[in-house]
């Protein structure tokens, strides 16, 4: 008999999906003439002032010990590691740069760097924290330490997803790594970065091996795009040629498409993970609309930038 776990959580999440923003809500937000009109559309959907941390806490209350779900926050964890390390080294307040939700507390990170011991950190951060601290204090090269942490985040995501995650989270980790690698590789291409830097900056993933990307980048822009066209990410390559914004949008949309498959499940942790990804995209959409409205952007431009919706 196959799995029946998280039946209650999945049903609750399905009920909550009704309050996610729909296409018509998004159109109303874009068309809102005044700020109060904008806010009233959000209030009608209880989406006014929502934050991802509350969503995460709610999901975590349904599956408190689920390690697989924690992988969704690895990017935040490693960002926080990077931010706290640099803030402490430069005598700044780390709380300004700390983002939530995260699997690690600000105090845990601060203590670890102050006491020069990664013992109190979650397992997935320990090794990288030690390496990044050593590298930054030795070289004082912020870019080098950022590169190390960013690459470690992607490979740790993939490693842990393969170790204790299901198919959905594995595909999520691979897609996230592939999108990040393509972006980094393209920048390296433009800046003609050497192979040594690429070795540190590129993570690699299934379908987009590290050595292949590096070889392609070292051959120049044309060789890089030609290589991408032979992979599953040919569509991303053509978008990247057009604009970075279109590329970013498609990467986010691919994640939503992935989540869309997971939400059809009746049991398991996947619908919860999918809901978190959807909520993340929704908050991003609201932020894009807000910023575009403040900048006085055209409705067409805002619509073009909207991420795919989950409902």
């Amino acid at each position: 008999m196959s799995r029946t776990d998280h039946a209650s959580a999945v049903a609750a999440v399905k009920a909550m999906e009704n309050s996610l923003l729909t296409h018509s809500d998004t159109e109303q937000l874009i068309a809102a003439k005044t700020d109060s009109e904008f806010r009233s559309v959000l209030s009608a959907k209880n989406a006014d002032g929502q934050d991802l941390e509350a969503v995460w806490e709610m999901l975590r209350s349904y599956a408190p010990d689920n390690r697989e779900m924690q992988i969704l926050l690895y990017r935040n964890d490693f960002h926080d590691l990077k931010a706290v390390l640099k803030a402490l080294i430069s005598n700044r307040d780390p709380s300004v740069y700390f983002i939530k939700p995260s699997n690690v507390e600000l105090e845990q990170l601060s203590t670890a760097f102050r006491e020069k011991s990664a013992e109190g950190l979650p397992q997935h951060l320990k090794k990288t924290a030690e390496e990044a601290y050593e590298l930054l204090t030795r070289t004082m090269d912020g870019q080098l330490s950022d590169t190390l942490i960013d690459t470690a985040a992607l490979s740790q995501m993939q490693e842990d997803a393969a170790r204790f995650g299901g198919q959905f989270i594995q595909r999520y980790a691979q897609l996230t790594a592939a999108c990040a690698d393509i972006k980094t590789a393209y920048r390296c291409c433009l800046m003609k970065k050497p192979g040594q830097f690429l070795q540190a900056a590129i993570c690699g993933s299934r379908g987009l091996p590290k050595e292949d990307i590096i070889d392609a980048v070292l051959g120049g822009q044309e060789s890089f795009f030609s290589y991408l066209e032979t992979t599953d990410y040919a569509e991303l390559a053509s978008l990247l040629k057009k604009s970075a914004a279109a590329f970013e949008k498609r990467c986010d949309d691919l994640l939503i498409e992935l989540a869309d498959e997971a939400r059809l499940q009746t049991f398991g942790i996947e619908p919860l993970e999918a809901y978190y990804i959807a909520k993340e995209a929704e908050i991003k959409n609201i932020r894009i609309i807000k910023v575009c409205r403040e900048c006085g952007s055209d409705k067409e431009i805002i619509t073009e930038r909207m991420r795919k919706l989950y409902v």
Binding site: A7, S8, A9, A11, A12, V13, Y62, T266
Partner: peptide, 8 residues
């Protein structure tokens, strides 16, 4: 279990 999730 599922029903309780929805009712919650």
């Amino acid at each position: 279990e599922a029903a309780a999730g929805v009712v919650s």
